[in-house]
Design a protein around this nucleic acid. Sequence first.
DNA 1: ACAATTGTAACTATAATGTTTACAAATAGA
DNA 2: TCTATTTGTAAACATTATAGTTACAATTGT
Lengths: 135, 135
Amino acid sequence: MYSTKFSVSIHILSVIALSDGKPVTSDYIASSINTNPALVRRLMSALKKAGLIKAQTRIGATGLAKPAGTISLKSVFKAVEKEQRLFAIHEDTNHECPVGAKIGDVLEHVNFQVQTKFEEELEKIHLSDILEGLK
Amino acid sequence: MYSTKFSVSIHILSVIALSDGKPVTSDYIASSINTNPALVRRLMSALKKAGLIKAQTRIGATGLAKPAGTISLKSVFKAVEKEQRLFAIHEDTNHECPVGAKIGDVLEHVNFQVQTKFEEELEKIHLSDILEGLK
DNA sequence: ACAATTGTAACTATAATGTTTACAAATAGA
DNA sequence: TCTATTTGTAAACATTATAGTTACAATTGT
C-alpha cells in the first residue's frame, strides 16, 4: 500500500486551489489536515519542484502553478511518492532452479502491465475533479 | 508499494505447478526462492486456505487445487496480501475546515475508482500465463 | 532592520516486512 | 504401534519506511 503522502498532497493542493490566489501558509494547511507544518512543507517543496504550485518565503503558497484541469493525479503521485512500483519483487532467487532463473523477468513484465493500467487511470483524474467533489 | 508476498507466492505456485503432481516441500521451494522455509510455509498456508493448492503434513504440496488457467493473479493477491488498499488515507482531518470535512470521502472515491481498475487488470492474468512465460 | 515563512536536516516513535528459531500436530510408512 | 518427516503456527529480531516533531539557516515583504 502506498503511504498517505499522495492523499495528503491532494489535500494540500485542494486547500491552495480553493484559497483562490490568497496566500496560505504551511501552518494553515497543517491545521486543516491535523498534522505538522514541517510535513506539509516537505510535500509543498516536492509539489513546487514538480511545477504544480507556487510558493515563496515569507508569504506561503500563492496558488497553483497551472490550471486545476491540467494537474493529473498521476503528476501528483509522481511528485511525492518515493516508491512508484506497485509490487516489490524478491530479487535474490536461485538461478540454478529453472523457475528461479526466469521468474524475475516474468514478474517484471506482470508488474509493468498492471502498473501501466494503474498510471493510465491516475492520469484520467484531475485536481479539478477533486475540487468538484469538494463542493 | 506492496510487499514481496505477492511475487513470492507466484513463485511458489509456479514451482508447485511445474512439479506436475510430484510433491514438493517448503524446503525445496525455499531453496528456489533463496529464502526461509518458514516464510514459504506461511504463504503456502494462506494459499491452501484460499483453495489454490493442496498440501499435507509429512508430504508437502501435492499440486494445484484447480487448473492454472482458472487461478487469476487477483485471487493470489487476495490470498496473501494483508493490505489490499492501494492508498493510505490520512484519517484525522480537521472537520471545521471545509476541505478537511469532505476530502476523506472524495479520496475514498478516487481510491475505489483506481483500485477497481487495478483488480480488473490482475483478474485478466492467470497462473497459466506465468507458466507460459517461464518456458 | 525586523519579523515571518519557507526549505531542509536531524531525531524519535511506530508499524510492516523479511528473516530466523522453535515446536506442537499430523501422518506416511516401517 | 512407533518413528521420522513435514506442515502449520507462534514468537523474536533486524531492518526499513513512514509519520511526526524540533530546530534553524535562508529568504524576503514591510
